[in-house]
Simulated scan of single mutants.
Amino acid sequence: LSLAFLGRADRVKASRALSRERVIEGGEVELRVEVECPSRLFRFADRVPDGLELVGGDPGGMALSAGRAVYRVRAPRGVYVFWRVAVDVTDPLGLASVRVEAGDVSVLTSLPRPVEARPPRGALGGRPPTGDTAFRRAGIGEEFMEVRDYLPGDPLKRVNWKATARLGRLMSNEYEEQRSSDVLIVVDTSPWTAVGRGDTVLDHEARAALAMAEVMMASGRAVGLAAYGVGIVRPDRGANHLMKIADLLASLRPGNVRLSMVAGVLAGSGMERDCSIIVITPMGEPDSVRAVEMLARAGFRVSVLSPSPATAEAGEGGRVVEAAIRLAEVRRRWLLAEASRFADVVDWDVRRGVVWAVSAVC
């Protein structure tokens, strides 16, 4: 009789509804789970993915014929998959039970926290801002190229009066044309990016990458993304492309990978060499320096934003941990100096925030 009763377990139905399928990291989502079962008694559980914090309610329960559960979770940055609902169907006598899975798979995406960042152009000094490339072609720009004979239509402000007086004829200054080039943001996901109390180095990297992409797109530049696991997303513009970048940044996880693997693919790709590349890396290993060198030697203009793992880990641990952090930071500073031979390097104390980082690079 019990076996005959349990044979009806394949008629179990379940559904799950999320209040939102996309949320900003740290946001809360409400989930409603409903289960119908021909059995008189069953127990069900919605399995909460690792990394989510249960902040209210219960994701399961016991019911007769029909049951419902309502609960809330808080989501750090990431992509979370809710598998089918687990239902344990019990016969009326309590002698036997069988587990079935019902319902559909759901996905929750927690995006990096957006930041209002409108940095001044050229925050690193006299060089063109990241994403602006000087071309050896006559045009309106800021970089002096040469002195030439005056041509009808040249504005008076471009007349070189000293050269005119010396040569006895009108001479004009010529400048290199500067135009906005494409920008590719490379995000490091090597083991050093897992460091951090609460927010990891990779969390800081993702926020900075999204903020830079938004700022540069707002100024008319096309922006792309490259990282291990997501491949190369070629530069483009528009709100849909920015959302695509945000989704990919949400999916990044630290792993046993090398930044030079991504750099090697980029160096051998058909990416235009006037594309500016921003590498976001903690610079924890010599491999990161090799990656920057590979990109520079391939003809790209490279900038490096380096979040300090020591500042992400600061304030916690005993003397041994603090000594290890200081030692690692000394080594990292040496690696940053090596990388500065091939790129403009910004050392980022993450406690200063994302706005500072974006202002220092863009």
Rank of each mutant, 00 (worst) to 15 (best):
F5G: 02
G7L: 10
R8Y: 07
A9M: 04
D10F: 14
R11N: 06
A17M: 10
E36C: 00
L41H: 04
R47C: 01
V48R: 05
P49T: 13
D50V: 12
G51S: 09
L52K: 08
L52M: 09
L54C: 04
G60L: 00
A63M: 02
A66C: 02
R68K: 14
V70Q: 11
R74G: 01
R84W: 03
D88E: 15
V105T: 15
L108T: 10
R118W: 12
P119V: 08
P119T: 08
R127F: 03
P129Q: 10
R148W: 00
D149E: 15
D149Q: 10
P152C: 00
K157N: 11
W161Y: 11
T164C: 10
L170S: 05
L170A: 14
M171C: 04
N173F: 08
E174P: 00
Y175K: 10
V183N: 03
V183L: 15
T189P: 05
S190E: 07
S190D: 12
L202G: 07
L202E: 09
E205Y: 00
M216A: 13
A222R: 15
A222S: 15
G224Y: 03
L225W: 01
L225K: 04
G231C: 05
V233A: 13
D236V: 01
H241D: 11
L248Q: 13
A250N: 10
G255P: 03
M261H: 11
G264Y: 06
G270P: 02
D274F: 01
V279S: 02
V279D: 01
D287R: 05
S288W: 00
S288N: 13
E293H: 10
L295Q: 04
A298Q: 07
R301Q: 09
V302N: 07
V304Y: 00
L305H: 05
S308W: 02
P309S: 10
P309A: 11
E316R: 12
V321E: 15
E322S: 11
A324F: 11
L327C: 00
V330N: 09
R333K: 13
A337L: 12
R341P: 04
D344N: 09
D347S: 15
V358R: 07
